[in-house]
Design a protein around this nucleic acid. Sequence first.
DNA 1: GCCACGCCTTGATATTCATCAAACACTTCA
DNA 2: TGAAGTGTTTGATGAATATCAAGGCGTGGC
Lengths: 221, 221
Amino acid sequence: MQMSPMVTAPRPYVPTATMRTPAPEAIRLIGVTVHLSRDQEVFGEGEPADQVFKVVRGAVRCFRVLSDGRRQICDFYLPGDVFGIEPGQDRRTTAEALTDTVLVAARRSTVVEDEDSGTARRLWALAMADLQRSQDHALTLGRRSANERVASFLVDMAARLGDVDNLELPMTRQDIADYLGLTIETVSRTLTHLQVSGLIKLAGCRSIHLRKPRALAELCA
Amino acid sequence: MQMSPMVTAPRPYVPTATMRTPAPEAIRLIGVTVHLSRDQEVFGEGEPADQVFKVVRGAVRCFRVLSDGRRQICDFYLPGDVFGIEPGQDRRTTAEALTDTVLVAARRSTVVEDEDSGTARRLWALAMADLQRSQDHALTLGRRSANERVASFLVDMAARLGDVDNLELPMTRQDIADYLGLTIETVSRTLTHLQVSGLIKLAGCRSIHLRKPRALAELCA
DNA sequence: GCCACGCCTTGATATTCATCAAACACTTCA
DNA sequence: TGAAGTGTTTGATGAATATCAAGGCGTGGC
């Protein structure tokens, strides 16, 4: 069984209002801007879920932890993504900043109770995007090999970061491992293997160049 | 890598109106009643998603298939459950009856476009239930051992079938395997092992008695 | 510029689970 | 009642991945 050494956040985040700001992109999120440093907690499992967030800069991981410390990262959120929509009243995951991160925080009630169909529909779309990604994730975790998982992770990240061939990953190997249901060693070995096969080029551990994106995509099965 | 022999549905389902009927339980679903026999398809991946369904009797599996036939069951739906809510316009999964099954089918637009907040809110709740279950599923697939997966499956099924200690499973071992990301042999061995440990009693392969539900729940981690 | 720390990679070995193969049970149908 | 078929269990073996253990690289602090 694999164990993930639990990373504890250095200090809990307190939503301090910096400034009121209009949302920069697709979804309208009126709220306060929040600055977080690396590994800082956005919210914790069990807390009341009264806010949603949009990533402006940086990145966030949402995860759950088993009683013995094994961690499963549900998803990463990148600039432009909205996260923090919960099925119920309380947080079912913990969210932490991967790097120094800027978020916009808005009261959940602002959007949920709003009967203005435009907003309600966008919120629906966001929740459904989470559902879709979660189902894709389950397929990967249940039925793909380590090679396929890593390849599909890279392809997915490339698409989300704007269809680039040069990835600047905001997360550590441990984060990737906990997202893909693998160990850090397996992730590392698999990346090395992909490099030896000529599919990618590692340039420092956070920077990955996709040399054969097409072949990589085919590897995902 | 594990292979799931693809089960092809014998005949596609055509939504024949049998009778208009009020929904029997919690969620209001006005639509036609549909009768399906074992392994019959409710809808297939790629089709337009214009209906949602409620299980009246029997059970349904929703799954996705990789290019080489590996199958991942996203979820099972039991009497009282509503399924078929999709993130987008088209079906991302295939749904099939596990046994002889009765469903109520309703046009999706009936509920989605309805600005009556009661209906909209219930639909939201249903979608969020799917999200929650999908995330739980990802945790299981990513970070639990075969033992833990089977134990949590049994505990979950017991809860959903009405907190009973005597399970009458509507699915085969292959279905369970494809849900838990295991092989049929591993599922079988694990169940045998649980029986030898005194936690469960197998009585015919579809019938399982939970002798120590508490211990079983602890096994899930 | 050097040291120290954290993260990453690599190697050796262990374990879990998949695969291959065969026998066994339950069901259906004659 | 018996035979065939389907699904399940069990056994033997192998492959994929985890675990344990070092060593290397990069980065930030002094």
